[in-house]
Design a protein around this nucleic acid. Structure first.
Ligand SMILES: [Mn+2]
Ligand SMILES: [Mn+2]
Ligand SMILES: [Zn+2]
Ligand SMILES: [Zn+2]
Lengths: 141, 141
DNA sequence: CAATCAGTTTGGAATCATTCCAAACTGATT
DNA sequence: AATCAGTTTGGAATGATTCCAAACTGATTG
């Protein structure tokens, strides 16, 4: 019964999350929110698109891109750029950094409490620091 | 006189640098080495191509890409990836990091002695840290 | 100097992720 | 049910980069 109760509410939950983010709860957005669902994940537009297809959700790739960006602006996701033409969307929006393996393109979280960047100079006049990104590039030993 | 002496040797100097890097000193590579020349610079393939054209050097864009990558492998340049589809080649190969302004796409050096990253965990089994890149993203205040 | 050949250059086609666009659709409101 | 701003979508367009096969050229050899 716990299960069925949760099942029933998951759709409503997605709707709540979308409304809270100021986004109209459409079929596509609801389905994507649920796919992002639980746990921390690093996903590309393409991988999310494939997941959606497999889940039997009809969503165009264009909408995937639109939605990922809207979610990012709304603070539900964080975009992580690791290489030219290679960016991931991270469901972990908290303070953390990444290991990036160029060999297989994988990303691994580094907890924010563990890592620290010290000595960042004041930004140039008229500029403000938006974010400090650390990418630890690793290779097969 | 100092000037003329330097002028004369600059071509030979480029040849020396190329040979030292294990690259055959061709007309194109020699010209590009001289364009990179003195001082620290952040350049894109496209910007270097335009510079070459202006300097009256006939070099195809494909060769620019080939050469930039060869120079990078040879340690004469360092590639800095700041965003999807946006990478720069840096003539400063020493230890340093960057401010990146998304508004105008500019890069500014942060001296390596100034900035420090602490607490990087051991990389996953079988992986070795290749490099730690820090990008301080700034925006117009 | 001429022949030779691996290394290099090149224009143009091909990739690939992402963005753009105009037309069709749909959630919310009246 | 009518309305309309917000959304979605297939397909074209972009833009940086890579690929390719043919032409070229620096270095070596006889
Ligand atoms: Mn995580
Ligand atoms: Mn510099
Ligand atoms: Zn992450
Ligand atoms: Zn630099």
């Amino acid at each position: 019964m716990t299960v069925s109760r949760k099942r029933k509410s998951s759709g409503e939950d997605a709707v709540r999350r979308l409304r809270a983010a100021g986004l109209r709860p459409t079929r596509q957005r609801g389905a994507l929110v649920e796919l992002l669902g639980s746990g921390h994940r690093h996903l590309s537009a393409e991988s999310l698109h494939q997941e959606a297809q497999q889940a039997g959700i009809g969503v165009s790739l264009a909408t995937i891109y639109n939605t990922l960006h809207q979610f990012t602006e709304a603070g539900l996701l964080r975009e992580v750029v690791v290489g030219a033409g290679r960016s991931y969307f991270d469901t972990n929006t908290g303070d953390h950094q990444h290991f990036y393996c160029e060999d297989d393109g994988s990303l691994i979280d580094i907890e924010g409490e563990a890592i620290a960047v010290a000595g960042v100079p004041a930004p140039p006049k008229g500029m403000a620091v938006d974010r400090v990104d650390v990418v630890v590039r690793v290779k097969r030993a």
